[in-house]
Every structure is written in C-alpha cells, then in structure tokens.
Nucleic acid binder design. Structure first.
Lengths: 351, 351
DNA sequence: CACGTCATCCAAAGCGCTTTGGGTGCGATT
DNA sequence: AATCGCACCCAAAGCGCTTTGGATGACGTG
C-alpha cells in the first residue's frame, strides 16, 4: 500500500493525504481523522526511501565502528553506549546506522556516509588526541558529536566527555590517603585521548605528593582481563611491588584481582585496586556494596546524552558548539584498604 | 555533485554515466574509464536515497535490539556478533540498521522496518522457544535469519545455532568423568531457547549417569558477574554444596570464581568451573592456557556466518531454508580438576 | 451584490537515481 | 545497393514521497 493507492481509495489527492498524515493544518480535522483511521486500518507506512529522497533527510544517525584484523577487540563499552543512544533515537524517530569498517578505512567511511547521504549526523567514538575525523566532518559539513575529546584539535566542536584527568587524579589521591606510595597504573591504549588524560591525572597526583614516577609500573594496552592479569602478575613479582593498582576498566581490573588472588594475597587488604567503572550493564559493580572501589560514570547515560544533543544539533545546526564535561563519581568498595606494612607484604606471598 | 551535473559536465546522458559506473556492458571501455576517472576526481557518490528508491533495495540489514526498562541488560555477546556481521556487510556493500526498541514493542518494530522498506533483511537475535517474530517475518515476506533456534516453531526457517544441548551435555560428562556428582547449573534466563537447551543437555547427562536432578542447585537468571557470585555464595554455603559449577557465560563464571575464592577455596582443586565461552573479544579465555575449562564457540564467527547466509538469501530468496548447527569445542583450562574427597572439602573453608 | 478571506483541497513538479525502449552510425553480409 | 547486426548512446518514464503554487467554494463584509 502506497500513498497513491491510499489517496485513490480515499477519494483524495496525495497532497491532502500526505498533509493529513503529517499534521499540516491545511486539512480539516474530519478529513484528517478519516485519513488516519484508514491508513491505520490498512497498516500504511510511508516508504522511508521515498520520504527521505523527497525531504532530503534520512532520519538515520551513523556510528562508525572500526575493527582491526590484528586485535579483534571490540570496545568494551560500545554495546552500552549504543543501547543508550539507540533508545533516544527511537524516541525521536531516528534509526541507527552502524558501519563496521577496517580501521584504516575509518576516515574514509565518514566521507562515504556523508556523500551518499545515508545519515543526518554521526557520532565519533574513541577520539585520539589529534583526531583527523573532526576536521573531516567539519569540512563535509556533517553534524557530528564526539564521545570523548580530542585534546590537540584546535577548532571548537561538539563533545561530551568524562573528566578523566580528575577521575584518575582523585583515584590516585584516594590511594595516597590510604598510605599507598607504590601505585601501578594499568591503562588503556594511550593513543586514545581518555587514556592519556587518565595518566596525566595519575601523574599529577603523584607529583603533588612528591612521589617520583616509575615507568616500570605504568602500563598501557587493550583493556582485557588477561592483560590485567599478566601485567599484575609481573608487577607483583617485582622486589618493589606495587601495593595498589589503578585500572582503566573494570574488565582489566578483574584480571588484576585474579593475579593478586593467585598469589595468595587479599584484595583490599594486601593489595588495593581501584578502577574506572563505566557502569556496563552486564558488569554491574554492585549497587549496594561495590566489588571495586571505582570512579564511575555511566556510558549508557553518555550515549543517551550524546544522542539527545546530536539530534538537537541536527535540528538547529547553528546552535553553538556544545561541550559537556561530566565528573565521575567515586564509589568506595571492597577492593581498597590502608597500605600494608611493607615488610609484612613482601613476606606474605605463599604461591 | 549529482548524476545530472556529472553527465552534463561529461557531455553524456545520465543513462550512459549510470551504466558506466555500474559496470553495464553497453558502454565502451574508453567511455567507462573517462566517466570513472571523472567521478573519482570529483568524489561523486550516488545518493543512497535515490538509488534505493529507484532500485527498490535499501542495501541495509536490520537488527532489532530490545531494551527493557526493568533490567537494563545488554546482551553480553551482542557487540561481538555485530562486529562479525558488520564486517561481512561492509564487504558486500550493505550497512547495518540498528533499531533499539522497548522490549514489548519488539515484534512491532519488525513490521515497521518491513513496511517502511528501510531494510532488505533482518537478523533475529535471542529467540525464545516459541518465538512470534518468525511467523511475523514469514508473513511479511521479509528475508530473515535467526541466530539461535526457536524449538517450538513448526515451520522451517533459516537459522544458525550452536548445539547447546550437546555442549552442556559434554561439559557435564566431563565433570562426571572427573568424579563430580554434585554439579550446579548457573544458567541464563530460561525463556531463551539456548538456556533451555543447555539445561536439557545438563539434565540428560546427569540422568544418564543415574544422578537425580536437584532443582536447588539449578539456577537461572541474567548472566552477570554479581549474579554468578551471589548464587555461588549461596550454594557453597549448603550442607551438600556442589563441587562443580557449570555457567552459561564467562561473565557469570567470573562471579562464580570470585565466590569460590572468597570462601578460601581453590578453583580447579576444591571446586571446578566450566562455562560456555562465546570467545568475546575483550574476555578472551586465554589462547595458550585457558582460565576456564569451557565449551567454546565464537559468536563473532556466528555473526559473520549469519550475515553471509542472509545476504545470499536476499539475493536468492527461493534458496531452500538454511540450517546450520555448530558444535562447540571443549577446551580444557585451569578451572577444572578431580572431585575432591568430600570430607576434605567440607572441612577446608577458612573464611 | 461584488469582493476579499478562509478553509480545503488538488495537479504537478521535483528529489536523484535506474531502466526501458528506442535511436544512430558503422562495417559486414547478401 | 539494400539490409543486417553490433556497439554505443540517449530521452523519458518511473520509484513513492513532499511541497509549491494555485483552484474551488463558502462565508462574511462594505
């Protein structure tokens, strides 16, 4: 059933039917009702294809997700961000277009989406420090919203970011206050802006406390469980082993915990862990009594908010650049405790 | 730049330009080359909107992901499936359309996608036993592919599933062979077909070994880490505590492990764990030495394969129903070992 | 009573492609 | 010389909507 058939059966012009369905005022309420009821009864839905060709809007928002053939890692937080954003899209009549591309084609993927006109706007995920996508999208005149920040990009752009520097600054201070002096950093890949910022927060806090940085206990890689485990195992074997770990993800923190327990040590007693908690739905960090002490910020909420802001930006492209910075919440769980007496610790391992 | 402008500048008709670009034979190689070079130089890309209106194909494949306001859980394996499928879509020139809908609107979401004509086919995720979506999609005459199975649906349909019954059957047998007699099942939600099948596999194996089923140690819920932890904590406190656990997900297995270790027991020695491992990218179960003994089947590969099959189905809708059943691989890791002497175990807890 | 104002409705022109159903000119065939 | 086949190209008709620029009456007004 298409518009023409519908209008013929109703004995009205396509114009009137279209207007009746789209809420234009040039049609009497009686007619509108008749049209709407008839359309409903016949399960009529305008063809998205035709509609978007006629209006010049696709009512779709693009997300480009890069995949690498080397490390097949999918961003841990991706699913939850998508869920949040998708929820908002649905509410506003938008759909989400996901484009999975080889990572070195990622930049080109955006031009393609723009030129093919398949989306009205895009979300930029996982920005690097000097992310080339931002300049590209500005040049293409495609509305976009960045989840995160690209610190080295000079021009203003729309973003929503968590204050990662502050989050890891606070996490570090929290451990320092507990008496820890040897604090390891298990970071994500440092080409990601967020990871760099987290390191800076960590470094600032240590410096402020007059503690020298030790590259040996500052690590960075993909945030998997095995990575957290492997690196922790290695660090705990050091003569001057850390008494606390800061992990960039709850996933790598799980690996950290496993390594600690394998060594026969107790988390929160012998060794402390604090991590960044994105409030991933299937990895809830306990509502009542958090497993991990963490700096928390819901990535699903971020997805919702980014979507909301991008949509309003599409509707009003001249609205000034939007920038939001969320502070992560510090939740205290079971994984942290006072720094142990150093001698006691170095004797304790039984494995 | 659109077709008309392009053809004007080239001094050719739109027809010829279109044919040159789309590889039709009615155009000389010289002209084709000239057109292609010119199009390339001017970054011309046909409007997806117009193209799909003209051809009647949208070159998009739909995925409906339900979200519930009650439990905000996003399917754990979702991201990896998507990554696999998206990779294949990209290769064939398709895009992925994600529709996030409230779970009770899910069925309607499919009709909408079909009637709006925004997709050429859909993937059905997480089928239940008697999944209504299958009948609906057949009625709508929309090509679809099911990831999983809907056991109670009578009509044939296209699916790819893992042999879940066999997987958990083998897992259970493996534990029985190790001497375990008290084996707990930490399943996913049993309205999911896969969970029911896994339970059946578990039950069959126990029955075959002449062991009575005990509902007290057969649990089912969302597969989160805290759930695995909570239920294990409870079960280990029983007088007749299980000596082994079978978990439906590596995520809940992490919770199981935590509860075991909290109790001061050793995984793979005092208590064994075996789980289903979907080979999630950020939860790799060790390439060399798996953390968990598991029945493994890559959900990313499943995504790839479903996409591949759906696309060929779209191209040739008359191709008979496709059904594939994959056997999960049993990988032996560190989390399983011989059943301990019962008395020794019940004395061992030190927490 | 003629005229302007509304409220309703419509015909037709796009949107930017693909595709049908020819044209045209050339060398080869009869 | 007339005919045919072939290679190459084109005009125009859709695809199913939205939207512009009127038409058509009914009604109130001076």
């Amino acid at each position: 059933m298409n518009l023409r058939e519908l209008s013929e059966q109703l004995g009205l012009s396509q114009t009137t039917v279209s207007r009746a369905l789209n809420g234009y005022p040039e049609v009497s309420e009686a007619t509108r009702k008749r049209v709407q009821d008839f359309a409903e009864a016949h399960q009529y839905r305008p063809s998205q294809r035709a509609q978007s060709l006629a209006t010049g809007k696709s009512m779709q928002i693009g997300h480009v997700i890069p995949f690498s053939t080397q490390h097949e890692m999918v961003n841990v937080v991706f699913a939850d961000f998508i869920a949040g954003a998708g929820e908002v899209y649905a509410k506003h009549g938008y759909d989400m277009l996901l484009s999975v591309v080889n990572d070195h084609d990622e930049v080109q993927a955006y031009s393609e989406l723009a030129q093919k006109g398949s989306v009205d706007g895009v979300i930029v995920h996982g920005p690097t420090r000097d992310d080339p996508r931002i300049a590209l999208l500005q040049e293409l005149d495609m509305p976009f919203f960045v989840h995160g920040r690209a610190t080295d990009v000079g021009t203003p752009y729309n973003y929503l970011d968590v204050n990662n520097t502050r989050a890891f600054g606070r996490a570090t201070e929290f451990l320092l206050d507990l008496g820890h002096r040897r604090i390891a950093l298990i970071n994500g890949l440092e080409r990601m802006d967020f990871a760099r910022r987290r390191r800076e927060g960590y470094e600032d806090a240590l410096r402020a406390a007059g503690i020298a940085l030790d590259p040996a206990i500052m690590r960075s890689d993909e945030m998997t469980e095995p990575y957290g485990h492997a690196v922790t195992k290695e660090l705990l074997a050091m003569d001057d082993a850390p008494t606390a770990f800061i992990a960039s993800s709850i996933i790598s923190a799980l690996g950290v915990r496993r390594a600690i327990e394998e060594r026969g040590m107790s988390v929160g007693k012998d060794v402390s862990i604090i991590c960044f908690d994105d409030a991933i739905s299937y990895m809830p960090n306990g509502a009542g009594e958090p497993i991990f002490t963490a700096t928390r910020s819901s990535v699903r909420d971020a997805g919702r908010r980014c979507a909301e802001l991008l949509i309003s930006l599409i509707k009003d492209p001249d609205a000034g650049p939007v920038a939001e910075l969320w502070e992560a919440e510090l939740v205290v769980g079971q994984s942290t405790g006072p720094a142990p007496n150093r001698d006691a610790v170095s004797k304790s391992p039984k494995a």
